[in-house]
Design a protein around this nucleic acid. Sequence first.
DNA 1: TTGAAAGCGGTACCAG
DNA 2: CTGGTACCGCTTTCAA
Lengths: 342, 342
Amino acid sequence: MGKRVTQHDVARRAGVSRATVSYVINDYKRGRVAVAAETRQRVLAAIEELGYQPHAGARSLRSGLCGAIGLLIPDANNPHYWGIVRGVEALAREHARQLVLAISGLEPEREWQALQALAQQRIDGLILPLTYPQRLANELEALHQQGSAIVTFGGMIPGRDTIITPYELGCEQMMDYLLSLEHRRIAFIHGVAAPMLGSDRLAVYRGKLAATGVPVAEEWIIHCGSTFEDGLEAAGRLLDLRPRPTAILGVNDIMALGALRAAARQGLRVPHDLSVAGFDDIPMTTYVTPTLTTVRINGEEMGRRAAELLLHRLCEPECPPQQAYVLPCLVIRESTGPSPEA
Amino acid sequence: MGKRVTQHDVARRAGVSRATVSYVINDYKRGRVAVAAETRQRVLAAIEELGYQPHAGARSLRSGLCGAIGLLIPDANNPHYWGIVRGVEALAREHARQLVLAISGLEPEREWQALQALAQQRIDGLILPLTYPQRLANELEALHQQGSAIVTFGGMIPGRDTIITPYELGCEQMMDYLLSLEHRRIAFIHGVAAPMLGSDRLAVYRGKLAATGVPVAEEWIIHCGSTFEDGLEAAGRLLDLRPRPTAILGVNDIMALGALRAAARQGLRVPHDLSVAGFDDIPMTTYVTPTLTTVRINGEEMGRRAAELLLHRLCEPECPPQQAYVLPCLVIRESTGPSPEA
DNA sequence: TTGAAAGCGGTACCAG
DNA sequence: CTGGTACCGCTTTCAA
C-alpha cells in the first residue's frame, strides 16, 4: 500500500518545480504558458515512470469543477429510462466526464439527495425528470441562483434548459391511426407511478375520441400502477367488459405488453380480435409476438441531447436557456390492425 | 450567482472558529471532541440560515475518500446488468454514497477509463466484470498495491473480493430438467459479446449430453453475437435443421426470447412443438407468451452483495479476501414441456 | 470546550 | 521558459 504519487514527486524526479508539472499536464491551455520541449519530455517521462495520476479532489477544489455529471431517473424498471442512461453515459464518456446515476423511485427524499450532490459539488450539473414541478421548486431555484447547471426532462421550468418530448403529437398520430382502422371502442391504460405522468396522452385520447363523436366511457380508462403486473391486471379488466374494446392503448409500452399478455391469456388473437399499442418504443417491443405498434420517443437521443445541453451550459453559463425537442414517431408493427367490427 | 458559502462564513456567523464548525458537522465522531450544546445550536442555526453545504472535493482532499463507488457493466442492452445496477445503487444510497456508472461495451479503452477514475480518487472503489482476466491484470494489480478497493464479478482474481455466480450449477439443473422431459435434440445458442462468456454453460451442456449418451452435433451449437437479433437469426437456423431440435437453450434470456420469436414466426407452438429456456430471469421473461423457463441469477442481489463487499473493504482494508455466492435457481414457466417425441 | 495553524494535492499568478 | 508561492475548503492535531 504505497503512498500516493503526487505532483511533488514528479517534480523532484524530473528536476523541475510543481508548477511546471502542472503546465505540462494541462498542456499550457488557458494562458499561453509554454514549456520547453526537452523539459516537457522529462516531465512526461517522470509521470510515466512513477505512474502519476492527478488527484481529482484536489483539482476540483481549485477549479470548482469535478468532471462528473449527475442523472436522476424516476424508475429503474422501465427500459425507456435506460435509453436515457445510455445516451447520457455515452456523451459523458466522449467528453471524459463521469456519470453519477441516481434512481429516485419518485421519492422526494431521494430526489433531494441528488440535488445535494449538486450543492456539494460532487457533480457539475444534473439532469433530472421534473415530475412534480413545484415539489423541488425552491431548491432548484436556489441552486440556479448559485449558478448550478440543471437540465430537466418530462416537464419544464420556464427559462431553464429542457428536453421536450411532445407526447401529445405522438398520441395524436396514434389516435388518428387507430381511428382510421375503424376502432371506436378504444380503451386506455393509464398505468403510471404519479398521476400527472402521462396525462398529456390521456388528454389527447379523450380529445380525439370526442372530436370523432365517440362518447368516452369512463370504464375504458383504467388508472393503475406502473408495473407490468398492474398493466396485466388492468387489461384483464378491460377485456372482461361487454362490449369488449377493440383496441387498447397503453400509456407506455410496459402497459401495452401487459395488454398483449392479457389478450393471450384470454385466447384473443392480436391484432385480429384486438389491437394493442403503446408509447416509447422500448427494445422489447420487437421481442414479443406479435411485435408491438408504438410511438417512438428515443430515450437514448433524449439522454444525448440532455447531456449536450448540460455540457454546453457548463461552458457558457450565461447563454440563454435552451430547449431541445425529441420528436415522437409512429411505428406500426404487428399488434394493430383493422377493427374486427369494420 | 452568489459565491459559495464556506465553513468560514458559518464560523463567523456563529461566532466560533472553523474547527468548531467541523466538529459539529462531523458530530465529534472519531476523536471524542465534545462541543457545548449551546455552541452546537448556534452553529447548526448558522448552517441552516446560510444554507451551507460542505465541499465534497475539499473533503476528499483531506480524507482521501470521496464517497462515491464505481460500477462498470459490460453491456447496457441486457437487463440482467440493470439488475446489478439497481442493487448497487440501492446499497450505495443507503450508505449515502454516490454511484458512478460506466458502460464498457467490453472495450478495453473504456474499462481502462474506469480504472483511471479509481486511480484519480474519483471513486473510492470499483465493482467490475472480469471478462478477460488477463487483460487488465497489471493495472488491477497496481491499483491493489495502492490499496484500492475492487470487487469483481463474472470472473475472479485469486485473493480478491469477488461475487461468484455458479452458472454451471444452474445449467446442470436446467439440463437435468430438459433431459427428464425426454428432450434429446437440445440446441444451444451461444450468443455472447466475448467468446469466453457463457463457456461455463456450454461446457455443462456438452457434458450433460455426453453423460446421457447423446452425441453432440456441432450444428446444434450456434455461436453468435449478443443482441436479440443475433439470437433470432441463430434460432431461425436451428429451426431449419432436420431433424429439428426439440428444445433450444439460450446462453441467456435474450437468446431464449429470440428463439421464442423465431418459433412463433415459423408457426411452431411452444412448448408443444418446441421447448425454449434461458438464463438470468430478466423481468421480461414473464412479459412474453408463453412465459419463459429460465435459471434465475438474481442481478439485484449480485449488485447488493458486491456493494456490501466493497463498502466492507473500505472500512476494513486489511480484512481477508471475501467471496459471496449468488446461487442459481431453476424457474419453470410455460415455455418448456415434454419432448414432442416422448 | 474552543481556537490556531499545518497541511491534503493542484493551479495560476507574478517574478526572474 | 521556469520557479516561488498564495490560495481552494476542510480536517485534525496541539495548545490554551
